[in-house]
Write a protein that binds this DNA or RNA. Structure first.
Lengths: 255, 255
DNA sequence: GAAATAGTGTCTATGAGACACTATGCT
DNA sequence: AGCATAGTGTCTCATAGACACTATTTC
């Protein structure tokens, strides 16, 4: 029992004269980040083109930004994700949430590997500054196109799909889209963001009632807009996470 | 940017004459499983006592069942979780869902490690058979007690807490508790299970309407009960996963 | 004043919660 | 008959969706 090959960690039986289990072959440990933004009226995701070098897997294919956990640099998984994000976007404090993990013997040709996937939301406006940091092999892609024909490296298409599902789901009952906007933002802007992510229109009146009832916005004064009546600007009362609404958005609650 | 120590995997820059990044130090990769059941009118979780051997971390403490991924045995993470579950409970086809991952330099004294946590639901009835497989250092613990004073090995108290939160959350809007019952079960039994997991009573009429409207149950004929009017027995139409209800349970939906 | 956008009022159908009721079997 | 459990009917009130309305600015 409890030994060797498999476990040893949480086994009841004394392990006797076995080599320590944790000296056995270890899978690779990586972190990948699905970075979303709303740009040009569309939901976009950041991808990185894989190098063409010999020995690199999936050469030339587009992939999620990510890579190996660095046991020297990264104190934990989240820190590693934040580092990857910072390297690619120069954004420091995005919304960042763990998505799940994917691990198998075959997902990376180099051997058994497990990746810890995160997803991030960043305002497109924050990127202007970061342009310098963006290399030529980094670009934003329309999410819808990527879902229609999945061609990403490794199992990244699958991970992307899971991220979009999670995002779309949560948007139905949380204030997540607010993290896709730079402050101050207006309610019409926020509504537009919801509509872009959800892929459908939502009623203005209901939307406003809902947002204000959730009590997560703070008025910041009127904001100048390209034309017409000046809208109220808002910021988040608490940037540490989204608010959860009591009910869902969908038109007919139907099962 | 984008080089060395850290990545190399998804970096734009040709890695030139660097040692391959994946030859660097690798974290340990483990899987832990939070196994729930409902037993004696309480929500229980399965724990394993850690061995007392020298060199083993957290000797004598109770921990979630789990251990190192075995790159020979385990084709993927889920398979690893299923294996751990089978080893401890002899249950083959439980409800099994990924919970998240926890990884840091310090969570295991042996070094940088990342665990992939899963949670499982099994009917207590299925365990009778498994008793043989259960070693002396395995036992069921009342979840509420463990949450009140967290004393588990490693960061397992944190993982358990996350699992309970996820479970309680999902129970509000899914048919998950059905996976805690052996078939056939009755609606009163199912209701009881909901109440135990949620920690509060739910209205009978509303409960039944809801369950039947969700159309995930199949009548299996009347079932003998200890007394009185015989209830209808049901089984799941689809054991592959829970149904999601359109709305939540909570009394006042209020925000 | 017209146009365009921001923001509010109001009506209604739905459906969940609450609770009273009926049904069926056991002793 | 009486009790205990299984199962149903019904009333009400909150609210989400729909949509019509008002408000404030620019030209």
């Amino acid at each position: 029992m409890a030994t060797r090959t498999s476990q040893a960690k949480q086994t009841g039986t004394p392990a006797a004269a076995q080599p320590k289990a944790h000296d056995f072959a270890r899978p690779y440990t990586t972190v990948d980040v699905v970075i979303f933004t709303v740009l040009d009226d569309g939901l976009k995701v950041l991808l990185v083109q894989r190098p063409l070098n010999q020995g690199e897997p999936c050469p030339g294919k587009w992939a999620l930004p990510g890579g190996f956990v660095d046991v020297e640099l990264d104190s934990d998984l989240m820190a590693c994700a934040r580092r990857k994000l910072l390297e690619k976007t120069a954004v420091r404090s995005p919304y960042l949430e763990q998505l799940g993990s994917w691990g198998s013997a075959t997902r990376d040709p180099r051997g058994w590997s497990a990746t810890h996937a995160y997803f991030a939301l960043i305002p497109a406006a924050d990127l202007a500054l970061a342009k310098g940091a963006n290399a030529a092999d980094v670009d934003w892609f329309q999410v819808d196109h990527l879902l229609q024909r999945p061609r990403l490296a490794f199992d990244h298409s699958e991970i992307l799909q899971a991220a979009v599902e999670r995002l779309r789901n949560k948007v139905e009952y949380t204030s997540l889209p607010a993290f896709l906007l730079a402050e101050p933002f207006t309610l019409p802007q926020l509504q537009k963001t919801y509509e872009i992510v959800l892929g459908r229109a939502v009623d203005k009146s209901g939307f406003r009632t809902r947002m204000l009832a959730a009590d997560f916005l703070e008025e910041i004064g009127f904001v100048e807009s390209p034309s017409n009546r000046p809208p109220m600007g808002y910021r988040l009362k608490d940037r540490s996470g989204p608010v959860i609404f009591p009910r869902t958005f969908s038109p007919r609650g139907g099962s």
